[in-house]
Design a protein around this nucleic acid. Structure first.
Length: 110
DNA sequence: AGCTTGACCGACC
DNA sequence: TGGTCGGCCAAGC
């Protein structure tokens, strides 16, 4: 059951897409990541850009740093805070290039 | 109906 | 390794 106010009233695309994305993101284990494209593919719905739109608008309440683009990076404003999380949960991370090591950290969704 | 805008992606220099 | 380009999918004007 969704509590009032937790799930945004506005939805994107097919009904329930936002919730499906957010639930999947919450299921990503500590220290692992998925890419926007991985998520769209796993859900068999929408595309990377739609997933990005969901994270941009509604990602604040979930472990958003576990979702990165296909290069292992996030927008510049988010990199600092994301790096803190990566250190704390031991996510394979290249400090120099400020990007997750996808080869080691990518999670296939189970 | 056409054009613009996005937390994107892969191919190709 | 890094930049450009075209494609992608949906929403908004």
């Amino acid at each position: 059951m969704t509590e009032p106010g937790v799930v945004p009233a506005a939805d994107l695309g097919p009904p329930g897409f936002v919730r499906r994305v957010l639930e999947l993101v919450e299921s990503i284990p500590r220290g692992r990541v998925m890419t926007y494209g991985d998520i769209a593919e796993y859900l068999e719905e929408g595309g990377p850009r739609q997933v990005g739109a969901v994270m941009s608008r509604h990602g604040a309440g979930v472990p958003w740093w576990r979702v990165v683009n296909a290069s292992g990076t996030l927008p510049p404003q988010l990199r600092g805070e994301a790096a803190r999380h990566y250190a704390e949960e031991r996510t394979p991370y290249d400090l120099t290039r400020e990007r997750v090591n996808l080869h080691a950290a990518r999670w296939d969704g189970g």
